[in-house]
Design a protein around this nucleic acid. Structure first.
Lengths: 190, 190, 190, 190
DNA sequence: AATGAATGAGTTTTCATTCAT
DNA sequence: GATGAATGAAAACTCATTCAT
């Protein structure tokens, strides 16, 4: 990604997360990026194309962060813990990107179907680890597809939680809590 | 809600869930409803107004279903179980509405802020029950705001799960699984 | 064709014949028609659509004029003479339309192919009459497809003749000359 | 014309005849020519300039072919026959060029006026021969301007004939037919 | 001679909204 | 209550042209 494309990339995340994809205009993005409108079209084919590029780049970053972190781990429960930590941190560091992503997952149009396909790839990573955990008798036998979806939704929706308590939030604390609830449940024990 | 307004209401849910709010046009909604475009403006002030009406009606319905079901329950854990069951069923019965709702929660514009406020009211119901559960020593001491968000996200994201496995899905089975994971966790036990 | 559509139709012919289809802008057409730009799109789907409508209407008019005139004629040579007269008159009366038509016949894009198809329908009328003439031994045996093309081109190109001599031209005189050359040739006879 | 300019020239004929002058883009022409877009502007001042160059080159070629062929002929009827043969052959050999030329003759803009002026120069050659023929009593007294226009249109429109019958066509046969019709007319004779 | 990234004015198109009937 | 023709501001997109390298 060269200098100009990166300027556009950053401006696009900024504007689109602020106003939403449809209310964001190419004029505003160009303006924010400090380039002419035509320059957007020199680097991207269309407005949709910018969105696709954004989501591809963002999801790649998240995936790579996770794969790198868990590559040298042995224990599948440790891996799941790490995913929660990384995803939580990612959520707060790249909040604007995550908002764009989450706003695009619910449609029935081709472009949204393609975005969901990319999410499925991500969920597949989690499922594989759940599989490992089950084999190692560290995780209870369960519906892994259901679980990975729930997992993703649970963590993602924390962004709504953050909107609500818009004071400073500690991703480490959140990760700890989510791990605790997820593994031990919320049922009272002595 | 009279006959015409109801036709518009149903057409709006249909079209907006299909194409997304911004790609849905007043022409299409009018067409689907079998009325003239002007008629939309007789019953609603604006396109935004239709969306607001949709979300208000849908959330009221969900809230009322839940409040009615749990009103005569004593045990807070039973109440939470019931909420999961009702919300899962709602999710599959009014899938189109839920898709519209979920697509609108992630923006920073006034209208989306107002939608999130409405979600917070809904989460408040869950929080109060968690509070009861903690007092009755049925639920572990926990961050109830965090937990209710996670709760909502987990159940909502099941709609992504359903997109993925677009064969028939049993909401009852899903509710059972979610309850099991939520209360007992996924940690392996003998 | 209602009042508004007719205003647009006339403005389109005016502007497009003046500037050419690609240099004519929707703004100019709307302006000339005395309607808002949006109104163009209420009555036509696109700029191309206006062109297609123009050409359809124009060719229908020409065809109808001819068919009406020759319907009660018996002699095929008389019919051909009449076609030359009608087409010449049409050429000068609806010069702007003819210029638009002629500028669109030479491309390889879908839209131009479709325009040529419409011309072929017109040429078919001429061919049929040539056939009649041959059967009646009034016209020499000849390649009727080649001849009808040549016929069309010869008459149409007179518009270039008129550009050159932009003083007043008498369509009747032109028709007479064309008929004379066509039937008797230009070879000198005593 | 050096190597690069020639590559551009050929690419321009190819692309412009395919898409039409206005739909052809400098990007496409550069792409087809295998040079960078900037290079087009090193060899030509503007897009219009390319078109003007194209038409000048093409018409010069046609004129020179004709003048060369008829220079040693004495009989004016023979000369006219030869013009028809040459023009027909040219039509089929440089079909793409002819399509571009024909698409540009019908506008009222300065550039099209200038193209018509060049056509008039070409028609002048024909007129002069007609004059000769009349003086030599080989051709009937006639309106030579009208006749040369008709002549040009008749031959040019054969390209439409070729579009229609897009199988192989023999220019020699076409030339023979045109000569026959032109000189002797289509009137039936015993 | 040649390049190709950048430009921005100009164009088509969209569509929520209005209003006279 | 209902209509639908008309609107016009706003948007996406195009592309010939420039210019620093």
């Amino acid at each position: 990604m060269n200098k100009t494309k990166e300027k556009i990339f950053n401006a696009a995340i900024d504007i689109i997360s602020q106003k939403g994809f449809y209310k964001a205009t190419m004029d505003e993005i160009a303006d924010k990026a400090g380039v002419a409108k035509g320059t957007l079209y020199y680097h991207f084919n269309s407005k949709d194309d910018i969105l696709i590029f954004l989501i591809d780049e963002g999801l790649s970053l998240l995936k790579n962060q996770i794969l790198e972190k868990i590559s040298h781990m042995k224990n599948s429960v440790e891996k799941l813990r790490e995913i929660i930590v990384v995803q939580s941190n990612f959520l707060f560091k790249y909040k604007d990107f995550v908002l764009i992503l989450l706003s695009q997952l619910w449609g029935k149009e081709d472009i949204q179907n393609s975005f969901r396909e990319k999410i499925y790839d991500y969920l597949k990573i989690i499922e594989d680890i759940i599989d490992e955990g089950i084999e190692e008798k560290l995780i209870e036998r369960c519906d892994k597809k259901l679980l990975s979806s729930a997992f993703f939704g649970m963590i993602s929706s924390l962004i709504i939680f953050q909107f609500r308590n818009n004071d400073i939030i500690d991703p480490e604390h959140i990760a700890d809590s989510v791990i605790e609830y997820t593994f031990n449940g919320i049922h009272y024990r002595d």
